[in-house]
Design a protein around this nucleic acid. Structure first.
Lengths: 254, 254
DNA sequence: TACAGCGTGCCGTATAACGGCACAAGCCCT
DNA sequence: AGGGCTTGTGCCGTTATACGGCACGCTGTA
């Protein structure tokens, strides 16, 4: 099934580089031009990409992927369960609320409700969050077994800002504190002007399946506000966790 | 490339029906079980789906599609251009603002900023909007050439609520009014409790490429508010249109 | 206990994908 | 103006690869 793998890789590569032509894409993928050309036509037939109409031909992705991707949180009705809770959080704080799911060693933003105040950064859904430099990432990591933590640390802790935790020991200590109080925090560790507080949603297996966070401009994240937000996300995550458990029981009788 | 087409179809089918097993999916697709099984394993290898871990095996989509789909508005930097304008709209109205793109005969929601007030419906990104029963849809349709309108009407006007326009003549009249004033409206025509006002974003070819809308509970959509919102979306859409044009000029020198 | 359904894997055949190649058109740098 | 280079597109013979019937072990039900 090499064929399908190539086609899907082409799609991903194209999404990042779009708008792009056959030759460029073929070079980027290290494949013959004619093979890539055939793949592009096929992806077009399937409705996943389309030519811009310009000459020379440039290709872009359609919304088909978005259409498929919106089901990513369907598994246990996570979206339906989390949204009301998220909305209450947003109403109480008037800050941006994020829902991220864990996926392998990645943490991915899947839903968001924005503050009504002006914001600098509006993250696109589908964005991978830095695990060691985001509140959601750290909340998930803290709820993971130690081996998963070590595996992640082994991959290296990339530095984004001057507050990013790049030292393994410091990260372990931070995760320990996170476990104690039930919520994680982020002080401009990914972007200097964004701070956050998050708490993990625990699935039936006792493992973190998602995380919910309150994101604010660093300037508004005072030392008094942080624990208040912490308590809020903690409670919210717990509510989602238990609701998920109930949904699962009803769903499959066990 | 039948192979790839089947794989992508399996992905779409799976997304809608997830969590689902091989046999069910094979039945739904009218394909041999072994072929579908092979496809599923391949899609897993590529990271687009994953087994839930339960027994018997059930498959769900990952966030890979979301990750690819977020580039759907990259083409001319639509997202970057539209978001600031959307945010200003939301700030001025404190109502939910939607950005939809046109794709073939479909209109797809690609970005949203929510009101800070409690809302009943939060639409997932990637959602197809009813063309004749949504403000965004009507805004796009009104900016289309007449032949496109007739082609759409020929497909039939499905009824969603008792205010849905199902009569071709009435729709043509409504589109004419939309063209006159520059903005479209929706009075609970898709969901009784959701009303909206929208204006189309016009691309370089003079055709509609997107649409921006203000969505409010029907109870808040008074006769006084409607033209006010109309003027706002109209101006917003114009700003996005001209900014797009400039971006395009700079982008390719023509 | 028999059975029907499931998910998984094998394997011989035939088909459909591969990729080298050629060609026309457009761009840029003389 | 021109020549060289790169582009997108399409053909076609070979061969590797996907197809799908089939069989297996398992689970839950009648």
């Amino acid at each position: 099934m090499q064929n399908v793998l190539n086609a899907l890789r082409a799609l991903e590569e194209l999404a990042v580089r779009q708008p792009i032509g056959v030759a460029d894409l073929a070079r980027a993928m290290g494949l013959p031009k004619s093979s890539v050309q055939r793949t592009l036509v096929t992806l077009k037939e399937a409705g996943w990409i389309r030519p811009t109409g310009s000459v020379p031909t440039r290709w872009v992705v359609t919304t088909k992927a978005l259409h498929v991707g919106r089901h990513a949180t369907d598994e246990l009705g996570l979206r339906d369960i989390a949204l009301p809770v998220m909305e209450e959080l947003r109403r109480r704080t008037d800050e941006t609320v994020h829902l991220a799911v864990r996926e392998g060693s990645k943490v991915v933003l899947v839903e968001r409700l924005e503050t009504s105040q002006p914001v600098r950064i509006i993250l696109p859904l589908g964005q991978n969050l830095a695990v060691h430099a985001s509140a959601n990432g750290k909340a998930v990591l803290a709820a993971d077994p130690q081996e998963a933590v070590e595996r992640y640390i082994a991959e290296g802790l990339r530095e984004f800002t001057d507050t990013t935790i790049t030292d393994a020991a410091r990260l372990r200590a931070e995760l320990a504190r996170t476990r104690e109080r039930g919520w994680a925090t982020n002080s401009g560790e990914w972007r200097a002007d964004v701070s956050a507080v998050a708490s993990a949603v625990i699935g039936e297996a006792g493992l973190p399946v998602a995380s919910i966070s309150i994101n604010v401009p660093t300037s508004r994240m005072t030392d008094e506000a942080r624990p208040v937000y912490g308590a809020l996300v903690n409670e919210a995550a717990k509510r989602i966790s238990t609701a998920l458990g109930r949904a699962h029981e009803e769903g499959d009788g066990g």
